[in-house]
Design a binder for these strands. Structure first.
Lengths: 171, 171
DNA sequence: CTGAAATTTCAGTATTATTTGAAAAATGAA
DNA sequence: TTCATTTTTCAAATAATACTGAAATTTCAG
């Protein structure tokens, strides 16, 4: 890019480009979180911050500082995200601090697996009260149910392919 | 309720095919909607009612009656669900009534396709501001991005398999 | 076990979302 | 086009949720 290495501001400029880009990312995630994912804006920001941090692990205080919200909110949201599989928690030895990170892509597979199974069960529940006297309902719910089963099967194969594919590079 | 089949109202009440057995389903969907899917309870109920109705199409008034909510709410929610691909709308000839149904499973594929592409784009956006000076972020976002691309490719093949599989029965 | 450090909980408050019902707009059969 | 029917919009009321900050609890190094 630059042919003027003596100009100090260029360095500053590139840094602030990075920060602006991160901000746009964080705000975009926050907006998607509240408009499409049924999460709070802050939940989206926290997830985004963990995605974009150039550290492997962040403490709750790091996150707190990055999103500019209270200790209590950050604690609650991190735990919620963990319970849903979107964040992992650990402890670094020699400290009582818990540290957080976003899981590897292959862990996302597990999140999807859980949601597929819930959906399949839901369709099975709907089907329970539906007999031959209601052919329309039976076919509709039946198709949805079968689709979930199909998707589950496909998903297992897909997961395996992903894990094989990334075998050479990452853990 | 009445056991008087000579009374004409029975025909009018084909909607009451939505019986007690379905209530558990509707309430379960409603609860999942508000706890996990980021929809309102009423949105969940409306979707559930459309899933479980033994009619191919329902009018907004049918839905209104089934969920016991106001005309305004039902209208707004049906349009929102339609915009997201979870409900389809049509008009029966000779009437100014719009009618609604849940789409076939293969239309759900399109919903998923859209959400995968949004997610992929989001990761690409995150990656935009990240250079070699931030290897941790670059690898993490890169992996998420690659996973989305992988999933998109797999998903196309999967969709085709589903459509072939159900070729004999449905549209 | 102790106690400093860290996390979690929770009551209070602020904010946001949902729902209603009626008015406005749109629709389409005649 | 007309106009009764149907849908949509929107202001107001209500309900639900998110957020804070401080107190209570938990954690773990020493």
């Amino acid at each position: 890019m630059s042919d003027a290495p003596w100009q100090g501001w260029r360095t500053d400029f590139s840094i602030s480009n990075i920060m602006n880009a991160d901000n746009e990312f964080i705000e975009t995630v926050a907006t998607m979180a509240e408009t499409s994912w049924g999460m709070s804006r802050l939940t989206g920001k926290i997830w985004a911050v963990l995605l974009v941090a150039d550290k492997v692990w962040m403490s709750a205080e790091d996150v707190m500082e990055a999103v500019g919200s209270s200790r209590g909110s950050v604690s609650t949201i991190l735990r919620t995200l963990e319970s849903v599989g979107l964040v992992q928690r650990s402890t670094l030895s020699g400290s009582k601090r818990r540290v957080y990170r976003v899981p590897s892509a292959s862990s996302l597979i597990e999140v999807e697996r859980v949601s597929l199974e819930r959906m399949r069960k839901l369709m099975a529940l709907g089907l329970r009260g539906v007999d031959e006297a209601r052919p329309v309902t039976r076919e509709r719910l039946g198709e949805y149910h079968d689709f979930m089963v199909f998707f589950q099967q496909e998903f297992e194969a897909l997961a395996e392919r992903w894990n094989n594919r990334s075998k050479e590079s990452a853990v």
